[in-house]
Design a protein around this nucleic acid. Structure first.
Lengths: 188, 188
DNA sequence: TCTTTTATGTACCGATCTGTTCAGTTTTGC
DNA sequence: GCAAAACTGAACAGATCGGTACATAAAAGA
């Protein structure tokens, strides 16, 4: 197992960055909590920014895998599959370690559109949008692109609401809204 | 005009924090860009965190004033007033200086629920939710609280989408979704 | 005008930041 | 079992962090 230390670092750093933030987490804090020496960290990653980018790529992969795996396992017909998005969201929100969306936070801390972390974050959302549109197409709605965009707005809004705690059940409110939007498109 | 320097500092710091982020902006950078000496800054605010909190309070006040002033000036009937929310949002998104929601970003950088900046950010959203619910009640929908929550999800989602650039017209998508949700509640 | 308040500039403090150096230890492949 | 690769620990560099000290200058109130 050659690249194990590198993977271990990315995995552990992801948890810490997610919990404490990117700027707020120093390399020394990573050393203390991961048990991996600073020398090794800078051997695998030239800069902290490089590590952050690797963490974001890892997060993108694991999050989408987890999310769509959940949807696949439910094995639902297209319309129910679209709605199940918000059930999976609720599961996520109820995890004790839930702290909002890592990519929203990354784009908040690295606002320059040229910044690789910002670009990677936008790419994550773009991939989700594409997946949503495919699901909307399979459901046979009249305007799948618009529906996908609207469901994505509900999803992002629900994440923000869950993180900031201004709604008791954002996933539920989003799901009932999604039901209305889907039904309206199927009837027209 | 006694407290003019203090107000000037809050006003200018708000622009800089909004543009560059809280952690990423050092006090020396504020000195350089505002032209106000560091001695004066720390005479008015004991710590940087105190300044940040004052900035967030100022932003909360000015943003809500601007937002609802825009709605008031349109002088629309209840249903149109609810929809106009998303027209005002689009105006905001199209401003060159638009960089997302300052409170979403603040809660991303200060994640501790005990942190005053986090609390202030959540309070801002709570105030918006209350205002939305009152507007929904005036529109005579069957479930004004649910509708207000759903419109708020659309609004927050649209802000995130506009900031991260994964939707060409988030305000438009949100508005059409809002139309469907409002109509559905008025028919039932 | 004289006094009090308010703001400035600069130098400085200790802590922390990212990143490096280097000598020694552990692990791995053969 | 031996050489090469990977990892460690600790010290260190230079910059920057939030925040202070202090002496001077501007400004405002009486």
């Amino acid at each position: 197992m050659r690249p194990s230390k590198r993977d271990e670092l990315v995995r552990k750093a992801q948890v810490i960055f997610y919990r404490d933030g990117f700027h707020a987490t120093g390399m020394d804090a990573l050393v203390a909590e991961t048990g991996i020496s600073k020398t090794t960290m800078f051997k695998h990653f030239r800069t902290k920014d490089d590590l952050i980018l690797a963490v974001l790529r890892y997060r993108d992969e694991t999050f989408r895998n987890w999310f769509f795996r959940k949807l696949d396992d439910a094995a639902l017909p297209p319309r129910q599959r679209l709605l199940a998005v918000f059930d999976v969201l609720r599961e996520w929100f109820e995890e004790p370690a839930f702290k909002g969306c890592m990519f929203i936070k990354a784009s908040a801390e690295f606002q320059d559109p040229q910044n690789p972390a910002y670009i990677q974050s936008a790419e994550h959302k773009r991939l989700l949008k594409t997946a949503f549109r495919e699901m909307a197409e399979e459901a046979g709605v009249s305007n799948p692109d618009l529906l996908a965009r609207q469901l994505l707005l509900l999803k992002e809004g629900a994440i923000v609401a869950a993180h900031m705690g201004f709604d008791p059940d954002p996933a539920g409110a989003a799901k009932t809204a999604a039901e209305v939007l889907i039904t309206a498109q199927l009837e027209s």
